[in-house]
Nucleic acid binder design. Sequence first.
DNA 1: AAATATACATCGGTTTCTTATGTATTGATC
DNA 2: GATCAATACATAAGAAACCGATGTATATTT
Lengths: 113, 113
Amino acid sequence: MIYSSELIKGTLKTIILKLLRDQGRMYGYEITQKVKDLTAGKIQLTEGALYPSLHALEAEGILTTETEYIGKRMRKYYSLSKAGSTLSQEKVSEFADFIQTMKFLLDIKTDLA
Amino acid sequence: MIYSSELIKGTLKTIILKLLRDQGRMYGYEITQKVKDLTAGKIQLTEGALYPSLHALEAEGILTTETEYIGKRMRKYYSLSKAGSTLSQEKVSEFADFIQTMKFLLDIKTDLA
DNA sequence: AAATATACATCGGTTTCTTATGTATTGATC
DNA sequence: GATCAATACATAAGAAACCGATGTATATTT
């Protein structure tokens, strides 16, 4: 089962920032594969969503980049800046809180209000 | 703390469908208040998002409506159709699964791949 | 040699939400 | 009894974010 696309909306940045915090540095394609592996294929990031998002985060100073070549093929590695490291923690905390709230909201069986 | 807007994106339909399954029938304003109450103000649905979404769900045959008047003030009650009842369960299940996946994804401390 | 995988990038269109605006009634406060 | 807040609907322009397609090129597998 692959999640309906609207579900994943808004979580992309959080996923990127968390992976980079764990992995140190990653390149775009690697991120798509890592997410696919870790979620058993349930979340498949599209390049059309990922690359613009990475570019935006870089422009905001959240990510820094280093370009390397494996043979003739380019790899653009992304890492967290200091601001990115802070933001990564904030985003994950916020999402953890959000999960709790949604769990409660979606588990209600009786009228609690 | 109010969640950043992009976090909530894509969850509106699920929230509506779940609440209607629990409550039987609700009107728009009631939904905004109920969500606010149940989430301690952390999720505040805006009318500009809610009403178009309700209209769309009605047009798709997911929701049915009855209009009533309290004095001279209109209330438009929404209920789940049969298709809506099925969809409600599917959406909540999908979200529950999504939560599990995201929890795993955001909790990784070490390289598991 | 052909197909698949790796690796980047952009762009048009769609969906979804935000912010603002508009109308009107009802209840509370002063 | 006037004013403000709450209740209750609705729409509409613009922004944000993503999808799907397209494009380029190298490397690996079959």
